[in-house]
Write a protein that binds this DNA or RNA. Structure first.
Lengths: 190, 190, 190, 190
DNA sequence: GATGAATGAGCTTTCATTCAT
DNA sequence: AATGAATGAAAGCTCATTCAT
């Protein structure tokens, strides 16, 4: 019966936070985020109880979006290598298309404000990626390593590639292909 | 005011900063760092003009120490693979022996306070590692990629491995071997 | 906007305010009071234009209730001492039965938010008590003092007694008798 | 070897807090207190860790000063009534001379920020007053009541008197005498 | 040079009040 | 009338940096 809580506002705040963190780091003031979102100082705290809550929800949202985008439309019947390639391409596209998201994520990932719960939530959302990697490494040199290791390893290589692509866009084509071959060698062997 | 006499004090501050950042993040107050170093609040600023300067110098110092340790005593005449293996082992040993240094480094690496100059300085200090990787990739699938990409890629894989080893020390032996094989596949191919 | 229909809601807010102030002090947020009353944030301001108005009305309401209860059923024809004793007993009963009212009142009494008008209103509502004290002191050592002084003095003694009774209920019987004798000595002499 | 912490500043802050609380209540902003003390916002927190600490220390300081002043120079060999009269006079003088202290104290006394420790500290500082009341009530109608009751009762009567004297200074002489007689009747009987 | 008190801008968070629904 | 989201002006407190001693 009152003014309903507005999902758009919530998203505007998350989006503004992404930009603010990308350019000013995790210390970006909530006041700056609110202004960037076109919302009053106090409204931010209507949608997120504390700054730490905002950070955690942003982290989960970005990671989830990344995983969803990377996995979109992958045909279930094709070969693991084909599937991984498509995922890889889509992943890179997402990251290079929105470099601010990538930059914000890099800061959030190492922040002490991110709780174990948030990391767990992200891990769950990435289970389809985990499945794909599981199938890709079958019979290869990584078959006995902890799956979490293979996951974070792939992630690290992807992020390094993304950063390099963002820094040297001219080499993008080559880099993306070279990097995928490298990942395949890591996960599946020659 | 930035011509310090006492090298011990300077080092005590850097060391305290490592611990403080590892446990409290980059937001660790200078007052806390000073106290941890057994030095007064004001003295910190005799040795480092600003907090940003301290952070940058710490970054360079840690990275340089890491490179120096990794490269120590590598016989010039042996095979690249042998040399890389030794470097790898020493690198991992340094990182797992001092996990606080590793944690502090992870935060510093993505911080906006670290200047391009500092990144450049680190890059220069790592030239011997670059040389080794240059020799290792000769004739392999990475021979045409930018060397900086190969460097950061190796770095990323190493850090992922280190984090996993710190988290699951029981698997250390296996992980270190598996990870080295992976790196070799990335850099030199099969 | 301050012409309420629903008297129950109004009372619920006053009652909730009593409890909130007793436990959190005068700084108790209006939001807390509203929730405690089972009423929405905004509704509180339909019944009371500002927080200060709420505080003042609560003050007057509590004091009035206290006076009314204290004076209930006192036979007009009995001796002043008898009347005063009955009032005293009823007063103490009211206060010890609802210690939150007593606690809230203690805070309100010294608050700057309570206007002179409110104090005046309370004074008027207490005229019957004033009359009783006037009759009680006749011919005694307080006969020439300002009546307001005798009133506040009696009040202060009562409140001290109440606080002590609440803190040490085991001694209640003794305390109440001892305190009444003391008041009588103050007002009427030996 | 550094700038020493300055006792005068500390006292200036306590004194400013007394004035600010007297005129604005316990909600008086620390910024106002600091400015009133001629000290920077941050300096206040060098001397008092939190606002609550400031409030508690102010409460203890004021009560202690009050007790000390009230007890000054009382000849040990004189009669209890004489001693009590002198204490009473000095007490009233202190309170009427600095009505802001009295007003601040009234707010602090009922505040939730004042800890049990502070109340205890005050109680200890008032032990000489307690002794005097103990001697005064010997053989009288209050001899079996809890001493703490007699203490707070006396206190309440004193404060009521002070408030009335401040409000109606013309009647001061009469009031003080009448009130002392009343206290004596309360404590010692006729 | 060393110390730590002093500073004040800046931060997160709260809250009385308003207003769209 | 009722609701609760929206607002923005504080509030308490922190902290990098300066400076008197």
């Amino acid at each position: 019966m009152a003014r309903p809580r507005n999902e758009d506002r919530r998203n505007a705040i998350l989006s503004a936070a992404t930009r603010a963190i990308a350019s000013q780091g995790l210390g970006a003031p909530t006041a700056v985020i609110a202004k960037e979102a076109g919302v009053s100082n106090g409204s931010l705290f209507v949608y997120f109880d504390t700054k730490a809550v905002l950070l955690n929800e942003l982290y989960v949202a970005l990671k989830t979006e990344m995983a969803t985008t990377a996995l979109a439309g992958i045909p279930a019947e094709s070969e693991p290598r084909e599937q991984l390639l498509q995922m890889w391409t889509q992943w890179l596209h997402w990251a290079t298309a929105g470099p601010e998201k990538r930059r914000a994520l890099a800061q959030l990932q190492v922040s002490d404000d991110i709780t174990a719960d948030s990391h767990q939530a992200v891990y769950s959302a990435s289970s389809a990626i985990a499945d794909l990697l599981e199938r890709s490494r079958a019979g290869g040199p990584m078959q006995d390593a902890p799956l979490s290791f293979v996951l974070t390893l792939t992630n690290a290589i992807a992020e390094t590639t993304i950063d390099t692509v963002i820094r040297e866009p001219a080499e993008a084509e080559t880099l993306i292909r070279v990097a995928f071959d490298a990942i395949w060698r890591v996960v599946a062997g020659a």
